[in-house]
Design a binder for these strands. Structure first.
Lengths: 212, 212, 212, 212
DNA sequence: GATGAATGAGGCTTCATTCAT
DNA sequence: TATGAATGAAGCCTCATTCAT
């Protein structure tokens, strides 16, 4: 574990380094991102990086963990309190845009994990987080059904998976041209881009139409 | 466009070369795939490749076009004839597995386009195909609504996007560990992998629960 | 085997490359010799080197084989014909100096194999050659004993090992300050260096005194 | 000379540090040995090392001096008293094995000095010690000749050099695979390794056959 | 048109040495 | 005096692309 020396840094500095790495990784992708470029962005020497992390892979995994941390923090903010399903979903959907703006880079990186060339990293990060979102959506769906807020004949898995898919792809559409195009082709005129707020309303309409 | 010389090759040879390239691209990803490795797989010389295609990017785009071609061919097979919505959807869903087996490599490459580091290629391929699937799903949804096969209060876009999402992610789950894990976490026990047929039934159930 | 491409080069070019590599390896030692430096000396690009040899280690082994080749060629020149022991030994001893001048670099490299940090290479080259010199010395010693040219009570192994040691260390003294110093401390006044011819006479005297 | 601060350390600590450095230097060779690795082995900080020694080279020279010291101490134990030549030689030969076991690392380092890439260090250490062994062997040879224990017609230099060569290479064969192989090829069957005691007898036989 | 050897810039990583604490 | 984090030059190797044959 080379991380000992990294963990000794002030937390702000740690985050600044991971943020810088995330920026480069998100811009160029893992394989195209250069170590020197990252070091320059992080304002550390090449040597320092290798004191902090075993190698490029190790750095990337640290960035993934940071991404998980941030998402979890965000999730916790959303998960608390009692709420009608639609309010809660709106809250979640609305949180996507500021999150995707503030933590764009981490979201992009997370998204990249889907690529098969990243398979070696996928297990490193996805497991915990996916399981968590599943649990969360499952519980709010069940509660909503018990309260008669959604149709009785919809199974929990179906609803939870549907919600998760839509949210994931919505989040992706906030940071990737490809997914934004796709979203706009379905919901827009295929030429102009939809704005964040418009997307939110469309997502919410989908939820209501299919679950309500 | 060096493609002229490529097009002079017998079609079988063209396909064999693209297939070989697709195999390597899918195994390693665009950036990690080596030109020499591809040439070896395609049984052509390095020099020949640069006679056929401008450069690595040009080769990749040719592979993308081939992927689009194959998907379109498949789509056309499915699109024909009159059919009840559920039968048509089942037909589509069921076609995913053999397609993902036969054209695994192309599907994987297509999947990689979602990665932001591939943004420069995304426009190259997605546009045409996405627009096509949208049109297709939109038309069958509208027909189904007219025939009372699905709920009247569901908008076409919502339904078409929902269907497309599910199919896309199902297809991805057939070729990517990451997406397979995700699917199984939602629908399985999170440990064992679901088989193709089980997935099909779960997808169909989702369609029926949410649209029906 | 990357060597296929190397073996396609004209033999002169092959030797020129190996000679250049041998020069740098002998000057700096294996670990201190830089690939780029070698390429510059060999007038080839870095890339070419890695087409010819798997890596630095592979290049070094090729140099070792070349050294073995040269020594064997030299040995064959010496081994032929019938001769009185003393004449034969003188011939061998005398051949050391021109050989050490012409193939200084290879000799130095061969010498370096004795260092424990080179253990991984030692087996690559020594085995065959050592065994060969042993066989050669053993046969001339036995013949000499049968002809009454040396004392009857000296065992073959003892004599062969003695001869080999002296020759080896003599050869080393021709290319290494350390061994030259050592030789001169024993046989000279410890300050001035002995010349090649003087060394030859001293070696021959040793042979005669101890074997004769 | 940073050595002043080093000399202030308790002698045990000094030896412990030099022993640790010797261990690493012998395992990896001078160029492959890492300063940090040595510091870890010596349980001192990187900074401390540079307080004790000017640089890597300075540390290595200190290790060489320690090696010389130890060898001299051993030599003195052997040199004392009056003894028949063969007994004295046996004593020397027999002392090689325990010495090579106890001070393996120092012996290996000493051995490495023969490599031309170490020429810059060779003068640092060899001079004094070689001169000493020469003096020692010369005196016992002369005494033995005066007592009629060896043949009269053997010159002092020849005998001393012969003895020193054999002892040196025997010592090397105790710590280096390369030299062990060489010894066994000459005296063994070339496959099995000879044990220490067998080697001793073979060395002694050589001495008696050639000098006696 | 086809070949495949050659190029050389650029990537990841190491490590002797320094210096603020 | 001791620490150990930081430096950054230099090392080995890869690979997209070119070009003589």
């Amino acid at each position: 574990m080379r991380t000992r020396t990294f963990n000794k840094l002030p937390e702000k500095r740690q985050h600044a380094i991971l943020d810088a790495a995330a920026r480069i990784f998100s811009q160029k992708g893992y394989f195209q991102a250069g170590i020197s470029e990252i070091c320059q962005a992080a304002e550390i020497s090449n040597g320092a990086l290798y004191k902090y992390f075993e190698n490029k892979k190790g750095l990337f995994i640290a960035v993934l963990y940071r991404a998980g941390e941030l998402m979890l923090t965000e999730a916790i903010k959303i998960a608390g309190g009692k709420m009608v399903l639609w309010d809660r979903l709106r809250m979640v959907v609305e949180s996507v845009i500021p999150f995707s703006e503030k933590y764009r880079d981490y979201l992009v990186i997370f998204m990249d994990l889907g690529s098969p060339s990243m398979d070696e990293f996928a297990s490193e990060a996805s497991g915990g987080f996916e399981r968590a979102t599943f649990g969360f959506f499952k519980s709010i769906v069940e509660e909503a059904r018990n309260n008669g807020q959604i149709r009785q004949d919809i199974s929990t898995e179906t609803a939870a998976y549907f919600i998760d898919n839509h949210l994931m792809l919505f989040a992706f559409s906030c940071v990737s041209n490809y997914h934004d195009d796709r979203f706009c082709q379905f919901f827009g005129n295929g030429v102009d881009r939809l704005k964040g707020e418009q997307k939110i309303e469309l997502i919410m309409r989908s939820f209501k139409e299919l679950l309500g």
